[in-house]
């Protein structure tokens, strides 16, 4: 076979693979949406699940997922940005720094189930937070910190060094320079990275099985006092999230319409993740345009 024929065949194969990958994603999304969207209704999104009868909803799970996301971001963002700033601005090149880098890398490759087990052992049992939103949020924080650190470092590294020099030359302290000069420029990168992390938090289940728990108490959506046991806002109550719910009904669902519920819940989850992804993309593009247009 001549080299040209081989080249043509290889090109054809590569084209096919690219088409195949796109087909897989479209098929995946299409399958979930087509099977699931029909099941989504206002009632499905707001009512509580049923354990044996048909007609259960995912209301509390959806609320738990969103609330847990907010809680997690409140803890993760300041910690992650702080650690990212340390790595990018304060850490001097030394053995200790490269060791910390290794540690962050190791943490980022830890399976989420291990993070969940650690949460079970330390947060749930040792610290006595129990199966709760708070334990879940902390576990997700640990899970997402390396990502947040990397995003922050990336954002700060994208800032032209002349900006820092300009600020220092005005007699501005380092910390003020970081806050008022560097961070605003790094914000688009950090923000779109954070939204992507949010999508990941929203879909995570393995780290939550043994931290936020696999059940949700009967919630009273008229009681908004965070200290009450049945209040949705109580961070120390167990909370099954949407992703955990999907897993649970697939493995031990007893309701006759369990497959439909799983499909509907998956569709909701996918739609949320899509929103996060497209949102991050759009935001990134908008911010870049704003900056380049100003130049």
């Amino acid at each position: 076979m001549s080299a040209k024929t081989v080249d043509k065949i290889a090109t054809g194969v590569i084209m096919c693979v690219a088409g195949f990958i796109i087909a897989v994603l479209l098929g995946l999304l299409g399958y979930i949406l087509i099977r699931g969207v029909g099941h989504i209704s206002w009632d499905f999104l707001t009512s509580a699940p049923e354990s044996i009868r048909a007609g259960g909803g995912i209301g509390p799970q959806l609320f738990n997922s969103l609330f847990l996301l907010v809680l997690t971001l409140i803890i993760t963002v300041p910690l992650g940005i702080g650690a990212g700033i340390y790595m990018s601005e304060y850490a001097k090149p030394s053995k200790l720094t490269s060791f910390i880098r290794l540690v962050v890398e190791v943490l980022s490759s830890f399976p989420s189930i291990i993070v969940g087990l650690f949460g079970l052992l330390v947060l749930v049992n040792k610290f006595g937070f129990g199966f709760s939103l708070f334990s879940g949020a902390l576990a997700l924080t640990i899970f997402n910190l390396p990502l947040m650190v990397r995003i922050t470092e990336q954002g700060l590294r994208g800032v032209p060094p002349q900006q820092k020099e300009a600020s220092f030359a005005l007699g501005i302290s380092k910390w003020k320079t970081i806050r008022s000069v560097l961070l605003p420029i790094a914000t688009p990168v950090i923000l779109s990275g954070t939204i992507l992390a949010a999508g990941r938090i929203f879909g995570e289940a393995a780290a939550l099985l043994f931290t936020a728990g696999m059940s949700s108490p009967r919630l009273d959506f008229t009681d908004w006092n965070p200290l009450d046991d049945r209040s949705p806002l109580n961070p120390f109550r167990p909370a099954e999230t949407l992703a955990v719910h999907i897993w649970k009904i697939n493995s031990e669902g007893l309701a006759p319409d369990a497959p439909q519920i799983a499909a509907g819940a998956s569709a909701v989850l996918i739609i949320m993740v899509l929103v996060f992804n497209l949102g991050a993309r759009a935001l990134g593009r908008y911010m870049t345009n704003k900056f380049t247009a100003a130049k």
């Binding site: 900006q163 020099e165 600020s167 030359a169 007699g171 501005i172 380092k174 605003p184 420029i185």
Partner: peptide, 20 residues
């Protein structure tokens, strides 16, 4: 040095205004 640089200003090779 932070206080010192307030008394000794500096202008750089390339214009470097802040993103403000």
């Amino acid at each position: 040095v932070v206080a010192l640089r307030k008394h000794i200003g500096m202008v750089f090779q390339r214009p470097n205004p802040f993103h403000k």
